[in-house]
């Protein structure tokens, strides 16, 4: 079973969100389960800095050799940082999806939206349902 940290929020499309300690910054990446499904990640396309994203917007693409998936913004906000290291080392998404393999950070516009996301338990169920 893949690693699904309890403190994060999730989308059923396999993005995770971490609310940082400042209460307004959210970090976004893809889950361990997602990187496992994709296989070796070879490229990540990230949103542009200062892009304004609404929850559900396409924010990027992650590619493996045989598949490509859109990355959706789990939460609305302005992009304030992108993980430029992924350009040179996309394999970090496979080896460390929740820390060094983060994708981008947004300054969130509505913290309430976090409550609409899945918690670890609900996401675990969603993954199990997918396996059928």
């Amino acid at each position: 079973m893949s690693n699904i940290p309890g403190e994060l929020k999730y989308l059923s499309s396999h993005e995770w969100v971490r609310l940082e300690s400042d209460g307004v910054t959210a970090t976004i990446g893809i889950t361990d389960h997602a990187q496992d499904l994709l296989g070796d990640v070879v490229f990540v396309e990230l949103p542009e800095l200062e892009a304004e994203l609404a929850a559900g917007d396409e924010a990027g693409v992650v590619e493996s050799v045989k598949a490509a998936s859109d990355i959706f913004a789990p939460i609305s906000g302005v992009v304030i940082a992108i993980n430029e290291d992924l350009e040179e080392s996309p394999e970090v998404v496979n080896s460390d999806p929740y820390d060094d393999g983060w994708f981008f950070k947004v300054k969130i516009s509505d913290a309430e939206e976090l409550n609409t996301l899945l918690d670890a338990e609900a996401y675990t169920e969603a993954c199990a349902a997918d396996d059928h």
């Binding site: 590619e63 050799v65 045989k66 598949a67 490509a68 859109d70």
Partner: peptide
């Protein structure tokens, strides 16, 4: 770079 192509990306 096959992930750009129709047999994987279909409508995208």
């Amino acid at each position: 770079l096959q992930a750009r192509e129709q047999h994987i990306r279909r409508s995208k």
